[in-house]
C-alpha cells in the first residue's frame, strides 16, 4: 500500500473509495483546515511560561573585584550566539563550553555554518574576537585567556541560503 490518504489509496472494494472513506477524507481535510480555538486561547501563555522556565545548566565561575560569582553556561552560550549573529554571513550551529577545576571555564568550541564564498580565516578571526570579548564581559578575569584557553572555530558547513547564515 502506498503512503496515500485513504480516499486516494482506496478503502472500498476493488480499490474504489467507499462513501465512508470519502467522508473520512473530507473530514480529515476539514480538521486540518480548522483553526483550533483552544490553541488560539492558550498559545501566548504556553510560550511565555516555557521561556521563563529554568533550563538545566552548569555553573561557570566569574570573578569581580568584589568577589567570585557564577554564570549559567546556558547564559554564556546564548550570549556567544548573539555575538556570533552580529558577524555577517555566518551563524553558530553548536557552542560547547567545558569547565575544569572550581567551575572555571577551560574551553569553548564554536561551530559555524558560513555563507558560500566567505573568507573563512577572516570569519574565524572575527568570531574568535567576539567570543573572547563576550567571555571577558561575562566572566571578568576568569575569562579564558588566549594562551591558556583554546577557542576553536570549526567551520562545519557552507550555505548560500540567507535564512541559514543571515
Amino acid at each position: 500500500m502506498s503512503e496515500q490518504p485513504a480516499a486516494r489509496g482506496g478503502a472500498g472494494p476493488g480499490g474504489v473509495p467507499g462513501a465512508g472513506a470519502e467522508l473520512a477524507a473530507r473530514a480529515a481535510l476539514l480538521l486540518r483546515q480548522h483553526t483550533d480555538a483552544g490553541w488560539v486561547a492558550v498559545r501566548e501563555s504556553v510560550v511565555s511560561r516555557a521561556l521563563h522556565a529554568f533550563r538545566p545548566s552548569a555553573p561557570v565561575r566569574g570573578r569581580h573585584a568584589a568577589g567570585d560569582y557564577f554564570v549559567a553556561s546556558d547564559v554564556l552560550v546564548a550570549a556567544l550566539r548573539r555575538a556570533v549573529d552580529l558577524v555577517p554571513r555566518v551563524a553558530a550551529t553548536r557552542i560547547t563550553c567545558t569547565t575544569g577545576e572550581d567551575d572555571e571555564l577551560d574551553d569553548v568550541v564554536v561551530e559555524l555554518v558560513a555563507a558560500y564564498g566567505v573568507r573563512l580565516l577572516e570569519v574565524a578571526g572575527q568570531v574568535h574576537a567576539v567570543a573572547r570579548e563576550v567571555l571577558g564581559d561575562l566572566l571578568g578575569p576568569l575569562a579564558p585567556a588566549a594562551e591558556r584557553i583554546r577557542t576553536h572555530v570549526h567551520l562545519g558547513d557552507v550555505s548560500d541560503d540567507p535564512r541559514v547564515v543571515g
Binding site: P56, A58, A72, D74, T96, T98, T99, E111
Partner: peptide, 18 residues
C-alpha cells in the same frame, strides 16, 4: 553533567533546507 563537560550544548549539524 560532570565538571569536565559543563555547559555542553550540542546540536548535530543538520541539512541546510529542512
Amino acid at each position: 553533567m560532570g565538571p569536565e563537560t559543563a555547559g555542553t550544548h550540542r546540536y548535530r549539524r543538520s541539512p541546510l533546507a529542512g
